[in-house]
Nucleic acid binder design. Structure first.
Lengths: 337, 337
DNA sequence: GTGAAAGCGCTAACAG
DNA sequence: CTGTTAGCGCTTTCAC
C-alpha cells in the first residue's frame, strides 16, 4: 500500500505539501503540484479513507436510510436511492445504505461512530420514531417525506396536498361530478404515512370547493383486490365517471377491469394516476398523471445536505410543486344519463 | 465525543482492556468486563469508525455496486440490495452503495482507499469491464451474475439455463408444441447480459430434446410494444399455444391482449413467467412461474463474502436451482384444430 | 488477566 | 509558497 509519506519522498517534498495538493486548501506552485501529481500517478497512490476520516473528523459519507418494506413504491425508492448516490458522488461523498430493519438505533450508531457525516431518511412517517433521536444528535440531516411536526428539520417532499387538489381540479374541469379515489393499501393509512393522508386532504378540500363528490377506498395491489374495490365503488356510486389512482399495483388491474366491463377510457370514464412518468406511459392506456419526481427529490435532498455541511444550513421545508401531464386517459365527462 | 481513553479512565482500567472487552479477542475477568461495560453505557461511548479502520486496516464495510440503469428489473435489484444490507448487518458490516455511473474506476477507488473491505457486483455482463480490475486488485469480491469467464472469481446466480429448460419442460409436458418466448428488450441482448442469453440457450436446448418449436422475440416493455410483438408471433406461428415471458413489463400487457382477443388462459393458451413471486401472484391471472430468488441471491453473496474475509475463501460458482410454481396460467394444450 | 506504548496514514495548526 | 510536528482514537504487539 502506497502512503502519502512515500509520495512525498518520491516527489521530494513534505507530507503536508502532498496533502495540500490533494485538498487544494492552500496555494501550491505549479511545478511542485506537477511533481506531486506525477508521483501520485506513478506510485498509484490512493488516500486512505480511514486515516483521512480520523484526522479530519469527516468521513465524506452520507447515510441513506431506506424503508425495510420493499413492497411499497419500489421503483420510486430505487430511483431516489440512485439519484442520491450519483448526486452525492458529484460532491465527493459516498453513500452508506441503511435499511429500516435496524430501527432507530441505526441513527445512533451512525452518528455516534462518525461513520457518516450526515444522513437522509426516506419514507418518513407523520410520527416517525427516528426523529427525536435525529433532533437530539447534532447530525445534519434531510428527510424525504414530511412528518407531522417538521420544526428544526429539513424536509424535501412532493406537495401531496397540491397533488390531490390538482387531480380533482383536472377532473372537475372536465365536468366530472363523482370521483372515486383508489388509494394505497389500508396498512399505509394505518401507519400514518404522510403522503397518503395529505393527498387525501388535498383531494377532499378541492372537491368541496368545486362541488365534486369524492369516494375514497384504500386498495391492496393486484387484480383480485381491485375487482372487489371497483365493484363496491360502482355499487355505491354508479355515477362515478372519474378515478384517481394512487397505487402503482392497482393501475393496470383497474384498466383491465374497466375494459372488461365495456367502460371505455376516456370516453366513459376518466382515469388519472399519481405515479412515476414511466409507469404512466407504459400502461395499457397512456395515463394522464401527476408525476412522482423521484430523481428530483433525491437530488434536492443531497444538495440541501451539502449546503448544511458547508455551514450554509437552513432548516426549511421544500415542497416540490406537482405537475400534471395530460395524456390519453382523461376526457370530458359523459353527458348525464 | 467520548473516546476509548475516557472510558478506560472512568472504569479504572487501561485502554487496551477496553478495546479487548469490545473485540472479545482475549479473555477478561467478569468483574472487569462489567465495570467497563457499565462505563461504556454511562458515558454513551461509540467507537470511532475512522480510528478503528485506520488501526485495524479493516473498515467493516462492503461495497455494493448496482447498475445505473434503473429501468430493468428494478424490484429484483432493490430486493437484492436490501437482502445484502440486512445480511451484512447481521455480520457486523455496513454497505456502501455504488452506482454504475462511476464506471470501473469505482472499483479502483474503493479498493485503493480501503473504504470497503470487499465488494459485491450486481448486473454482471458476460464481458464485464469491471472484471479485469477486480482480478487485479486483491479485494475479496462476489459477483451476482455469471460472466463468460468466471475463472478466479466467485459468482452467485440463478441457473438461468436450467430455468429456460424448466419452462419448456413444463409446457412440453402439457402437450404444447409451439412455444413463443417474449424476451427482454433488444438492448438487453445486445449488451450480452448473461441471464438473457443463457435462458434462451436452456429454452432452445430443451426444445430440441422434446421436439418443441420455439420462437423467441425480444420486446420492449409496455402495452403497445407487446401488441406489435404478439401480432407478429401469431402471424408467424398461428398454432402457438404456450408463452414464456421473461420481461416484467410485458406480463400484464400480454394477459390483457390475450383476453381482448378472446384467448382464454389457460384454456386456449398457457403462459409461464420468469419473475419474482410477488409479480406472479399479483397479475390478473395467477401465473405459473419460475421465481427469481432475489433475497436468496443477496444473502448468498454476502455469506460467501464473509467466508472469504474470514480466510475460508473458495472461488466457486454458485448456481441456484430454479423452482417452478404451478399456478393458474398453464394447462393442457388445446386439441389440435 | 491486565498494562504500556508504538504506530496506523493523514490533516492542520504553527513556523518560517 | 513550503516544511515540521503534534495529534486524531483505536488496535495490537510486547511485557508482566
Amino acid at each position: 500500500m502506497v502512503t502519502l509519506a512515500e509520495v512525498a519522498q518520491h516527489a521530494g517534498v513534505s507530507a503536508s505539501t502532498v496533502s495540500y495538493v490533494l485538498s487544494g486548501k492552500r496555494s501550491i506552485s505549479a511545478t511542485t503540484r506537477e511533481r506531486v501529481e506525477r508521483s501520485i500517478r506513478e506510485l498509484g497512490y490512493h488516500p486512505n479513507a480511514g486515516a483521512r476520516a480520523l484526522a479530519s473528523a469527516r468521513s465524506n459519507i452520507i447515510a441513506l436510510m431506506i424503508p425495510l418494506r420493499t413492497d411499497l413504491y419500489v421503483p420510486v425508492m430505487m430511483e431516489i436511492a440512485v439519484a442520491v448516490a450519483t448526486t452525492a458522488r458529484a460532491h465527493g461523498y459516498d453513500v452508506l445504505l441503511l435499511t429500516g430493519e435496524e430501527g432507530p438505533g441505526a441513527v445512533r450508531r451512525v452518528t455516534g461512530s462518525g461513520l457518516a457525516d450526515a444522513m437522509i431518511l426516506m419514507d418518513v412517517e407523520l410520527e416517525d420514531e427516528r426523529l427525536p433521536l435525529l433532533r437530539g444528535s447534532h447530525q445534519p440531516s434531510v428527510l424525504i417525506g414530511l412528518p407531522a411536526e417538521a420544526g428544526g428539520l429539513t424536509c424535501v417532499d412532493l406537495d401531496w396536498t397540491a397533488t390531490g387538489a390538482l387531480c380533482v381540479e383536472h377532473l372537475a374541469g372536465l365536468g366530472h361530478r363523482d370521483i372515486a379515489v383508489i388509494g394505497e393499501a389500508p396498512a399505509v393509512y394505518e401507519r400514518h404515512t404522510g403522503f397518503a393522508e395529505r393527498t387525501l386532504d388535498g383531494l377532499r378540500a378541492r372537491a368541496r370547493q368545486t362541488g365534486v363528490r369524492v369516494l375514497h377506498r384504500p386498495c391492496e395491489g393486484g387484480y383480485d383486490a381491485m375487482a372487489v374495490t371497483l365493484a363496491r365503488i360502482l355499487d355505491e356510486r354508479p355515477g362515478t365517471s372519474g378515478f384517481v389512482v394512487q397505487n402503482e399495483s392497482a393501475v393496470e388491474p383497474l384498466l383491465a377491469l374497466l375494459r372488461q366491463q365495456g367502460r371505455a377510457v376516456p370516453e366513459d370514464v376518466s382515469v388519472i394516476a399519481i405515479c412515476p412518468d414511466q409507469v404512466a406511459v407504459q400502461a395499457s392506456v397512456r395515463l394522464t398523471s401527476v408525476a412522482i419526481p423521484a430523481q428530483e427529490m433525491g437530488r434536492h435532498a443531497v444538495e440541501h445536505l451539502m449546503a448544511k455541511l458547508a455551514g450554509r444550513g437552513d432548516d426549511e421545508v421544500v415542497l416540490i410543486t406537482p405537475e400534471l401531464t395530460v395524456r390519453a386517459s382523461t376526457g370530458p365527462a359523459p353527458a348525464a344519463p
